[in-house]
């Protein structure tokens, strides 16, 4: 369970102060899929950064598994991110010159997974995104959709509890984007992994269990989707 309590954050000072997040409160049950929606500049990306410990709010609490991650020191936050969270970005951020194996291996290395246990995990993850045949290919030789699937493999290889996706289909056409969406929701349902998607794609948001609309740093509405 992720509890977001009274999160506020301001950029700048004095007259230039800009309140990017203003008293945000909500709770995400384990295994849920959540869409955070809003126009660009509404603060939805900042909210995701705060929830993953990449950014610090001015006040409030982020409680994951009963622990307020904002009170952890840097080392513990890093450990938390490497073992319990993972990320998918709009621009993929796969390492173009590395092959698929090394790309997927990175989170395992960061999380200190023993080298002997890496290979099977990497192969499982690549198989899940249907890229096992590209294991030796360099990432730059992949198509856009394949790159994002590689990013999904990298995100799921270390079995995270929470998967953050920032506009995961923003750079993809609807067919390849649809494939990536299917992968994410399948993984979410099968493994009971919490999926938090930042998007302004209404169709993608409609597939989520919960929609949180952000407007000018405040929660505009929270909708539970009935399935």
């Amino acid at each position: 369970m992720i509890e977001v309590k009274k999160i506020s954050k301001t950029y700048g000072k004095g007259d230039n102060a800009f309140r990017v997040l203003d008293n945000i409160n909500f709770t995400v049950p384990d295994g849920a899929s959540v869409a955070i929606l809003g126009k660009s500049g509404s603060g939805k990306s900042t909210l995701m950064h705060v929830m993953s410990g990449l950014d610090k709010p001015d006040s409030g609490e982020i409680i994951i598994d009963g622990k307020n991650i904002l009170q952890l020191n840097q080392k513990d936050i890093d450990k938390f991110r490497s073992t319990k969270m993972s990320f998918i970005f709009q621009s993929f951020f796969v390492q173009a010159k590395e092959n698929c194996y090394d790309n997927v291996s990175l989170p395992l290395e960061i999380a200190d997974v023993a080298p002997s246990r890496r290979k099977s995990k990497i192969e499982t993850a690549l198989k899940a995104v249907d890229l096992l045949d590209k294991i030796k290919s360099r990432a730059k030789d992949l198509s856009g959709g394949q790159k994002q699937r590689l990013a999904v493999a990298r995100a799921i290889v270390n079995s995270p509890q929470v998967l953050f996706a920032d506009e995961p289909t923003g750079n993809l056409d609807s067919v390849t984007g649809g494939k990536v969406e299917d992968l994410l929701f399948d993984y979410n349902k099968k493994n009971n992994v919490t999926l938090i998607v930042v998007t302004h794609d209404a169709e993608l948001a409609d597939r989520c269990d919960m929609q949180i609309h952000i407007k000018d740093g405040k929660i505009d509405s929270i909708r539970e989707m009935k399935k």
């Binding site: 969270m85 990320f87 951020f93 989170p107 960061i110």
Partner: peptide, 16 residues
């Protein structure tokens, strides 16, 4: 820059 950012987002420590 992006590679470093990604590694840090994935929990790589500053020291590393």
């Amino acid at each position: 820059t992006q590679q470093i950012g990604l590694m840090k987002a994935l929990g790589m420590r500053r020291r590393d």
